Simulated assay, not measured.
Amino acid sequence: MGLQAVLRMIYPPQCIGCGEMVTSDFGLCGACWRQVHFLSGLVCDTCGTALPGQDPGHAVHCDDCLAIARPWSQGRAALAYRGMGRALVLRLKHGDRQDIVRPAADWMHRAARPLLKPGMIAAPVPLHWTRLLRRRFNQSALLSAALARLAGIGHCPDLLQRIQRTGSQDGRDRDARFANLSGAIRAHPRRAARMQGRPVLLVDDVMTSGATLTASAQACLDAGASDVAVVVLARVAKDT
């Protein structure tokens, strides 16, 4: 019996959602799978949120993206931020469940395929160094590294810097969220040349108002990126 088979007998694959035994590593059981709301079909071309109706054959946009100027050109999200999708995001972000990165990156890769361009470089939304020190990892950087490998594109984990320690976005309205991030993110002085004239794919775990992605995308464009697209694991949105 091979070592892999022995290890599977000792440590059988478990569902990343509930811990029940499953047939393959990094998978979900049937019950947890049914609680994940994948964003497919007709979606907003700017943020990836699900929209009602059939594909009209051209780009469509949600009400939020029609009302708010986005500095990025296209965006996608793998999951809706509810049910098991929300649980997985919180476990990755606050529960040190880095085993979630592998399946999450696969879901994000599928969602991001329409955004991929030759010469594109992936980069995570940055954390302030004090928060990174406390959390020990940037979940968005883990996702962007795994996604870049799957997509076969370049990756720069410190392409951007968060130079201001901003307060939590929780409990703030949309305008306050954008004001809170004003001037907080810039291109890393020693990395900015890597995006000169190149498209950038920004990666984050969750999009709510888009304030953090807006600050990050604008920093990329200011540093000379030719285009910015965004992909997130989960999108917070109203039910359609």
Rank of each mutant, 00 (worst) to 15 (best):
T46Q: 10
T46D: 09
G48E: 02
G48R: 01
L51G: 10
G53E: 07
Q54M: 08
D55K: 08
P56W: 13
P56M: 10
G57L: 06
H58E: 05
A59C: 12
V60P: 04
H61V: 12
H61I: 08
H61Y: 15
D63W: 09
D63L: 14
D64C: 11
C65T: 10
C65F: 06
L66R: 15
L66E: 14
A67K: 01
I68G: 05
I68C: 08
I68W: 04
R70F: 13
R70L: 14
P71N: 13
Q74S: 14
G75V: 10
G75C: 12
R76A: 13
R76Q: 11
A78K: 00
L79S: 01
L79T: 01
L79G: 00
Y81I: 01
M84D: 04
G85T: 06
R86W: 08
L88S: 06
R91W: 06
R91A: 15
R91E: 15
L92H: 06
L92W: 07
K93C: 08
H94C: 05
H94V: 02
G95V: 15
D96L: 14
Q98M: 13
Q98D: 10
D99K: 09
A104F: 01
A104I: 00
A105C: 10
D106F: 12
W107H: 02
M108P: 00
M108Q: 13
R113E: 14
R113F: 04
L115S: 04
L116D: 05
K117F: 07
K117T: 08
P118R: 11
P118T: 10
M120S: 04
I121C: 06
I121T: 05
I121E: 00
A122Y: 02
A122V: 03
P124V: 05
P124L: 06
P126T: 13
H128F: 11
H128A: 12
H128G: 12
H128K: 12
W129M: 12
T130P: 02
T130Q: 14
L132K: 03
R135C: 04
R135G: 03
R135V: 09
N138W: 08
N138S: 09
Q139E: 03
S140V: 10
S140Y: 06
A141V: 02
L142A: 11
